[in-house]
Amino acid sequence: MTMKLWTAPRLAALGLSLGAGAALAAAGNEIKVSMVGSTYAPGEVKAKVGDTLVFSNDDFTTHWVYVPTQGYQVSRAELKEGETFKLSLRRAGSFRVACGLHENMVMTVTVAN
């Protein structure tokens, strides 16, 4: 309940601070990935270059989004309950998303041109 109340302003703040990136992202879709019960949902995402992944920690514990796949490696430590992390997709290909805190928490993303 309380989570929803403060996620909205947070998202707005993120959107504003993205600057030039937001223009690019606006051309594509925002794809939400929810973190619940220490799993990524959905476990598989098909996206397009220009889309933005929005990882949302809807869980009751901290997560750590990271991508180990060469060429796509990113990391966002300590994503707390209610926080979001936006990743703009600018390169076609496919990569794995894992969690730095939960070894079995994995998903795949495929980005088409």
Binding site: Y66, Q70, G71, Q73, V74, S75, R76, A77, E78, F85, L87
Partner: peptide
């Protein structure tokens, strides 16, 4: 090299 990790929280490249 096995790649470079963009750290969005600390604004570092690892």
């Amino acid at each position: 090299p096995l790649g470079a990790v963009d750290r969005y929280d600390s604004k570092m490249i690892r």
